[in-house]
């Protein structure tokens, strides 16, 4: 698996650390209640097929990326900077 970092170019998967589904970027309000927080922290869509998830370019530029990937085939479709997605 190779991931196209928008800053560094396409790099080996070894350089990246996986964090989890990109929905982690949508943090609930502190007072959103335990159901919302449980959903955010623990529950997952866990898709088989196209997925968007967060990877950290640990051994590269240090940026957080949102990677578009197929979880059934390991195909990587693209990646963008998480800060652009989040804002």
């Amino acid at each position: 698996m190779r991931i196209p970092c928008p800053i560094c170019g396409t790099r080996d998967r070894r350089e990246f650390t996986y964090q989890g589904a990109a929905e982690l970027l949508r943090r609930p309000a502190p007072d959103a209640g335990d159901a919302a927080w449980d959903d955010y922290l623990h529950n997952r869509d866990n898709p088989c097929g196209e997925a968007r998830d967060l990877w950290f370019h640990e051994a590269g530029c240090g940026a957080w990326l949102v990677v578009e990937r197929d979880t059934a085939t390991h195909e990587v479709m693209g990646a963008e900077l998480a800060e652009k997605v989040a804002s």
Binding site: N43, R44, D45, C48
Partner: peptide
């Protein structure tokens, strides 16, 4: 490993990543 998909058929989201 398919728990997420089957649970979704019952409208559930599980604390599971495959």
């Amino acid at each position: 490993g398919r728990s997420g998909q089957v649970a979704e058929m019952a409208g559930m989201r599980l604390p599971i990543e495959s």
